[in-house]
Design a protein around this nucleic acid. Structure first.
Length: 404
RNA sequence: GGCGACGUACCCAAGUGGCAAGGGAGAGGUCUGCAAAACCUUUAUUCAGCGGUUCGAAUCCGCUCGUCGCCUCCA
């Protein structure tokens, strides 16, 4: 199995860090608002990855962070006149419901940033102790120049880093694509501020970029085999996360970094202000099934942008319906005998695995299998042969999750 | 303006050096026949344009044009 590793920018054969279990961590949702189908595209890509690893015989342990405390959540909660905790609770419930609806496995470890504040504080103390981080006006900042190799994921040229101290103190940063300067780790706050914790380093809350390290540190004590997330987080967030974690642990944070590209709508990026945000509800309301929605979001390579439109959706749904019809004809033909895998079944499996092993080409896998099945003379199939094909379809659909 | 991605039929899209997958829509047909569904057939001498490399290019190189993205928040 080959995967495109953002760290190094090339396809590499996947070899997990240990032989027992593939430990992976995926960048989870910010739960200040409802997740849209673009968010779900990324989570679906990760779901396919988990399922395919399991199909290939690996045991997988997946963690996914939930960002529940940050500037945006605080603002949103104020606007809605609810507590940040309550706002997050509601959105998390809804998020998990939709994950299940779209046939996604729920990650094994689903920490909330607000539950890992103690660990964040511990990391900050370590960083302060090592001189990588420092106090400034009640906040704690991280100095990338103190960390050799900073920016290796994105490929930053650190010789262009400003010599003069520049600090970025918001959770998300204004400016050019890369903020060249020190980033915030800890927002010092007034005593008893509602979104503040009383900790060993005083009252405050952890900044966005230290949340993932704290949640990872909580339950993983070795290099992660895989780290995944949306492409947008490659530019700052993931290099920050990596630098923090590698400043406190003597081994690499993750071996393979995978980034999923974005979903567009009608050739444009989804935009709240233009009203082009689509939710699963939007599509369910148009009469599409959850399987059809899942399918339309995985039908495209994860490293390419995927364009959504009404036309694409209806055409994808039609294609899926068509294949499902073929699949049920094959199943009818099969009867109930559980046979050994025949030549045609083996060939179908080969098509699936060959495409999936090539950097998770779900679209190619689906197309290949659909074409192969469409080329079968189903009426001429022996019951045993049909049963073998049917079994492969069921097993591979344990990964794709759109047929049954 | 800086950086980046992309441009394949009416639409979506695979293909990354050796005869241009597939789907949707359209057209024609079969079966029904009030319709629908289903099935079959058909739709790019050509890959944005122009040059170059090569026995051979949609695929590699250069330029031009066009679209989109990031540099605001974002999976």
């Amino acid at each position: 199995m080959r995967l495109f590793n953002t760290l190094g920018r090339r396809c590499e054969v996947f070899r997990p860090v240990n032989g027992e279990v593939v430990n992976m961590f995926t960048c989870g949702p910010s739960v200040y608002q409802k997740a849209h189908i673009g968010n779900f595209r990324t989570f679906l890509f990760e779901d396919i990855l988990v399922r395919y690893l399991e199909y290939a015989g690996y045991a997988v342990y997946r963690g996914m962070n939930i960002t529940d405390v940050e500037d945006k959540a605080i603002r949103e909660a104020e606007m809605r006149r609810v507590s940040v905790r309550k706002l997050a609770d509601r959105n998390i419930d809804e998020f998990l419901r939709e994950m299940r609806l779209l046939g996604m496995k729920i990650p094994d470890y689903l920490p909330r940033a607000s539950d890992c504040v103690e660990i964040a504080v511990e990391i900050i103390r370590l960083l302060l102790g090592r001189g990588v981080a420092y106090w400034h006006k009640g906040n704690v900042y991280y100095d990338p120049l103190k960390h050799p190799g900073f920016g290796k994921l994105y490929g930053l040229d650190m010789s262009k880093w400003p010599k003069k101290r520049v600090r970025f103190h918001r959770d998300t940063y204004p400016g050019i694509q890369w903020n060249r300067g020190d980033f915030i780790l800890w927002h010092g706050q007034r005593e008893k501020d509602p979104n503040s914790w009383n900790t060993e380093i005083g009252w405050g809350r952890p900044a966005w970029n230290i949340q993932d390290p704290s949640m990872i540190l909580h339950s993983f004590s070795e290099t992660l085999s895989l780290y995944c997330g949306g492409i947008d987080n490659l530019y700052r967030h993931h290099d920050y996360t990596l630098a923090i974690l590698e400043s406190v642990r003597p081994y690499p944070m993750a071996r393979y970094w995978l980034h999923c590209h974005h979903l567009y709508v009608n050739g444009r990026k989804m935009s709240k202000s233009k009203g082009t945000i689509y939710y699963t509800d939007t599509l369910l309301g148009q009469g599409y099934t959850a399987k059809e929605i899942r399918f339309s979001l995985i039908y495209g390579h994860y490293r390419s942008k995927l364009d959504y439109s009404d036309e694409v959706m209806s055409s994808a749904a039609g294609m899926l319906r068509d294949f499902r019809r073929t699949v049920s004809l094959i199943r009818e033909r099969a009867g109930r005998r559980p046979p050994p895998e025949g030549e045609s079944a083996r060939q179908l499996r080969r098509i699936f695995e060959e495409r999936m092993n090539d950097d998770l080409d779900t679209k190619g896998a689906f197309d290949g299998m659909r074409r192969y099945c469409a080329g079968l003379d189903i009426d001429a199939l022996k019951a045993g042969e049909a049963a073998g094909i049917s079994r492969v379809l069921e097993e591979t659909d344990g990964v794709l999750g759109v047929l049954y």
